[in-house]
Design a protein around this nucleic acid. Structure first.
Lengths: 247, 247
DNA sequence: CCGGCTCCGTGCGGCAACGCACATACACCG
DNA sequence: CGGTGTATGTGCGTTGCCGCACGGAGCCGG
């Protein structure tokens, strides 16, 4: 039987056409991604791209003062390391594992190679990059105009969509550093949500009780990001579907 | 003699290798870009890409409430219409002319065509896109952590770098809507700057007197954006330089 | 079962930006 | 050259978030 881990758990890998997938598959290496692990630092040369399956990675910008802010998150819908094929080799932001889990690692050289064949892989990667851009734009606007509670709800929903369970292993401190706000601000907002019965938590564990509650309290940014991702990747087919159609 | 307008006033066009430039040149159409003109709206089908020469275009996100925020600006260093070659055809943000001037327009179809040849043009466009992403990331973080005055300075510097003169035709109201803050906030910040002798203005005209003053008051975000743009496009050659070397 | 580390709750003062309301004053146009 | 519209200055009170400081409490390891 197949192992519990499978590259197709990552949506981008799952969407590659068979020929292109077969070329990459032998080089995909399953790696554990540990909470807090840094996949790359600003300015550092990227050696690998990562296709998360169960892990979630946060793209983070850290300012001179030490203050930081997440600009986008990457889960099983995407990949970390866009700078490899965009040509810059590195970015001024860093990538940190926000939820522990696994992902598939691919040597940067091979990703570039496949990208430069200018086939469907290229097309797919560019589409995904555009979705990532949309997420960053949304984050920029959200940072400007929405309250901490709204942003917390947005963030919880986005994270939830990338996880199999309803529970996040996550301290408030960590959430605060993601959103770039004070820890106390999160305590406050989370307290409200708990009071309303929307979430519950114990030390380092946040459980979502009532997803719809988050949706009504979140700002429009959540659905905007989801909609744009769906739009951009709507016409991609997964190999399974293709073979189902073919068979 | 040559007209005062020339496609090479746009840095991207100037950096295209001769063969690729020659293919596009006959289709480049000089158009005036009027203050406030909307080049595209969220979700609208993009028909053209624009390579600004003397104009500056603002990429803007407008929220349901009507509140808005600039996520990046495009001047003679770039192009408007990245969604054409990224594959999404449209974006959730809009593009508005922030400083009147001119630009060259190119049919979307032709840009895609050239991009798909997977030559140096593609490489160049992707590099530029990465620079644009860096700008958006920076904006997101800046929105979170920096004061209105710092942001105003950053914004003035970025705008100034795209203009031949030291004067911006720009009401405070307009600047406020770019930064996504209150008009009064700009009045206040600009008042400080004027008091310090850094800028001067009359109704709708902002003149920079002492650029270094802006630089010291701006947050790190200005130089971060500039540095990243320079890094990403550092190894591109302009046709003039190439022929100079060749000749 | 106990100590200690980390995480979470809370309270205070402060400040920057907001929303609103109006006074002023410039620039243009007839 | 006066009138009108729009741009700018200013002053409120309000609020959301910050910085700091400390108390309490869960969880883990010994």
């Amino acid at each position: 039987m197949s192992s519990p881990h499978n590259p197709s758990q990552n949506h981008l890998l799952a969407a590659l056409p068979p020929a292109e997938f077969e070329r990459l598959a032998p080089h995909l290496e399953l790696v554990p991604l540990l909470l807090g692990q840094i996949l790359y630092e600003p300015g550092g040369q990227l050696q690998h791209a990562y296709f998360p399956t169960t892990a979630i990675v946060s793209l983070h910008y850290v300012m001179e003062s030490g203050a930081s802010a997440e600009t986008a998150g990457v889960g099983n819908e995407g990949l970390v390391g866009m700078a490899l094929f965009m040509g810059g080799d590195t970015t001024p932001s860093s990538a940190v594992v926000q939820t522990a889990g696994h992902g598939y690692r691919l040597a940067g050289r091979l990703l570039k190679q496949e990208f430069n064949r200018a086939g469907l892989t290229q097309r797919l990667l560019l589409r995904y990059t555009q979705a990532l851009i949309a997420q960053m734009i949304q984050t920029a606007a959200c940072n400007r105009h929405h309250s901490v509670e709204q942003q917390l709800c947005r963030w919880l929903l986005l994270t939830l969509d990338r996880l199999p369970s309803q529970e996040l292993i996550m301290t408030q401190e960590l959430v605060a550093s993601m959103l770039g706000v004070r820890r106390e601000g999160i305590t406050q907002a989370a307290g409200n949500l708990q009071h309303a019965g929307v979430i519950r938590y114990r030390r380092g564990h946040i459980s979502v009780m009532e997803r719809s509650g988050l949706e009504t309290r979140a700002c429009e940014c959540y659905s905007a990001v989801k909609t744009e991702l769906a739009r951009l990747l709507s016409d991609v087919r997964y190999r399974q579907e293709i073979s189902a159609v073919a068979g």
